[in-house]
Amino acid sequence: MYSLLSTQNLSASFGSTQVLKNIQMDFDEFTVSAIIGPSGCGKSTFIRCLNRLHEEVAEASATGKVLLQGHDIYASDVDPVAIRRKIGMVFQKPNPFPSLSIFDNVAIGLKLAGVRRGAILRETVERSLKLAALWEEVKDKLNSQGTSLSGGQQQRLCIARALAVEPSVLLMDEPTSALDPISTAKIEELMTELKKTVTIVIVTHNMQQAARISDKTAFFLLGEMIEYGETSELFTAPKDQRTERYITGRFG
């Protein structure tokens, strides 16, 4: 029995600067894993390695293995495009596509993948927006621009957009850092609901958030994974001194 997603000796660099060093982690199916750590420690870089988005940055490179259901997604015969279809991502800043309607923002992943049937698209859009807890707010204005929504609504639109292509893993890079407490609460609530169908890896700066929503938590420091374990244990009885100092707010 292997985990849904795992990394082996994963290292990443920008040019000649190494920012991730030999990361080993396993993510089990239908769990929420949180990644915490001080700014610049490589959290974003790490999750961007998981869907091979890291390599799209100029001069960025990664070595090691990332296994999805036991298959190395960095193997030379694997198409990164196919991988990203399976491993979706939500970014820190809400980024709906400009000039596209709410409907098209959600439908575009399927549309551009060749799905033409209107009924299927409508059904998917409705289901994804409901999953993202946005349906009630936008069902009467699906044709208005995605960018016309509020920041919190835009972020939920981005979540719906990512869910529409039915990924098995959803990566979230500080999805609530730009949002107010109410939108944040909505998205947190949503995650507990989502984990029935997808596996979530979330980066967060908010330790209360990590404690509230995640099953397991990892602490990163200077490109290394210091500690990874059950969330309740990591926050109450950290094994590493550095973790303890970070979560008690004594550095970082």
């Binding site: 495009v81 990203r84 979706g88 970014f91 980024n95 596209l100 575009i108 551009l112 993948a113 957009r161």
Partner: peptide, 24 residues
């Protein structure tokens, strides 16, 4: 990051450029 959002949906770059960036 709009381009990255398109790539993260599992779309090839040329489709992102034609149907999201250029259209946008």
């Amino acid at each position: 990051h709009i381009r990255e959002a398109g790539l993260a949906l599992g779309l090839p770059r040329w489709k992102v450029i034609l149907w999201i960036i250029l259209k946008g």
